[in-house]
Design a binder for these strands. Sequence first.
DNA 1: TTGTATGCGTTATCAA
DNA 2: TTGATAACGCATACAA
Lengths: 353, 353
Amino acid sequence: MARVTLQTIADRLGVSRATVSYAFSRPDQLSDGLRRRILEVADELGYAGPNPTARSLRLGRAGALGMIFSETLAYAFADPYAVGFFQGLATAAEDAGVGLCILPLPHGDRRSETVRDAVVDSFCVMSLPDGHPALAEVFARKLPVVMVDEPYVPGHPFVGTDEPTAAATAARHVLELGHRRVGVAMVGLHDDGYTGWASQERQESALFEAMRRRRGGYQRAFEEAGVDWSGVPFYEVARNTRAAGKKAGHALLGCDPRPTAILTNTDVLALGVLDAASDLGLDVPGELSVVGFSDSAAEDAGLTTIRQAKREMGEATGRLLLSGAAAKPERLIFPHELIVRTSTAPPPRSPRR
Amino acid sequence: MARVTLQTIADRLGVSRATVSYAFSRPDQLSDGLRRRILEVADELGYAGPNPTARSLRLGRAGALGMIFSETLAYAFADPYAVGFFQGLATAAEDAGVGLCILPLPHGDRRSETVRDAVVDSFCVMSLPDGHPALAEVFARKLPVVMVDEPYVPGHPFVGTDEPTAAATAARHVLELGHRRVGVAMVGLHDDGYTGWASQERQESALFEAMRRRRGGYQRAFEEAGVDWSGVPFYEVARNTRAAGKKAGHALLGCDPRPTAILTNTDVLALGVLDAASDLGLDVPGELSVVGFSDSAAEDAGLTTIRQAKREMGEATGRLLLSGAAAKPERLIFPHELIVRTSTAPPPRSPRR
DNA sequence: TTGTATGCGTTATCAA
DNA sequence: TTGATAACGCATACAA
């Protein structure tokens, strides 16, 4: 009973392969009695049902949507923004009755052909740095692709946020509250593992387009408000974790003069900054204002943040891919919204030193 | 340029299909010049590379691991326990260089053949209620399967927690603190959407094995402590959300006499109970102790809980499936641990009424 | 180093 | 209602 196929069953019953196929895939094309007999024998022989791969080959469809992240999967699933997006994407897949295939990319010197070998009908590519080799592999497959957040490839469908405007909104919020000594903590600019102060040049040459533009939004808001951007302490961290945020917070709060407000490009980082403030006994928002980004972990902590429609973005991406509309190079920019909670307030009148 | 295959390229160059195949899959079997020419023509013709489905059929492997939940995917991704498990599973898939294919199950009257059609080499089945039809569909595929948490199917590999003991540990904790008026809030016993008080009979007939056993652990601890279980108010909710936990909290805290401690079977529910306590102006843990489960959302809130090794469980499941060891009916029970934080304390001396 | 032939397990077409 | 045949696109044993 090594391998039982349609043919095995056909032979056993003295009918043709096609007939057996009908018994499984087109029940209405067969007399009831014969069908029952076929199913019976199939069961008896331990037939596992029509082989999905063969079926897929014949039918020309995989029944699955491929999803690609730049980071390790453990990291991706630890990111509330990504998980939120995921919820939406999964919902779309669910509605269409197709699988959602998460494709790990090789990291370090590990080798892997997942993109080349993935049995999928389309790809969702999220947050890949400029020039990442996986992007070329994806395009080589000549399947529908939707890019999410970054990179934007002209001529291809894209789903994302108006990064500069969203970031500027966050920055303007603290500037309008009256803050003039503002620090910035960002993650996801480069993928070289660097954590520390980032020069203007390093900021501008960020590998990840979305974060690069987000940073540009901060700068623009400062310039429009007539606040000197070059004096803004800018701390970059390598990983989007609370611990990294705390480290950034301590670095920034150690500046002289100490910032009265800190902008971060993720909520997770912002939580870490709050930890640092707490370590130093600083009152938030009395002595320090903190702004997050994406509203993915902000509510309980009372964090002011920029809300993004992560779930809707995921769902839209899925529908684009599954409806075949991904053929057209649509560009879907989802709205964002400043959510003011209790982590921001005007700066103290005479700040402690 | 409808469809370009190996044959198209072979014809164009006047070589055989096999030669072209070699150019892609066995570069060493070919002269460098010919290989380059082939690749060139392939590029020119817009060849997308060897068709993964055909390749998969020929090779007899899919290069993907299938994953099944009982809930909608949006719900699964909102559950921190599931996401934690996922991190581990994804890590294993990543290490093995295979895809992780999430397979939505049909819900409501929706029809879907995802399990039957999934191009995967094995299945991970998580938290399916007893008798769920998807389980039969999975077994019909005759592929390696690992069940996680529930149901346990004798003769098949299983990864889970010692539910009764873990639950008893949680219950014993509050009993040993001196609580005698304890309420219980649980989710995931049935899938009929019911929210409200649950009779003893309804508790015992819970559809989900893990939660049924977890509840049994609570009861056992009470009986061993000589506390009357039948007097324990037991509130059941349909969804694992903070809002549902809050509702349960209000119901339980409305009892007379009011419980001085509440056990919940998820952290998310416990957070909701804390919300309810806050609504009523109850001090935690001064006037009310709360215990969660799984340590998935507990830390910030200072919640006492049972820590489960979700990520390790996911990784172990993946390795079982990917190493081929899933052939043996291994039964991996992962350790749990009571984490005491600041949501539990002895009951008040003379509790308010 | 390259070509030939065959099989992987289905399903669709068309004829009986 | 059922059967024969031809794809689907590829990889491999074997021969040249």
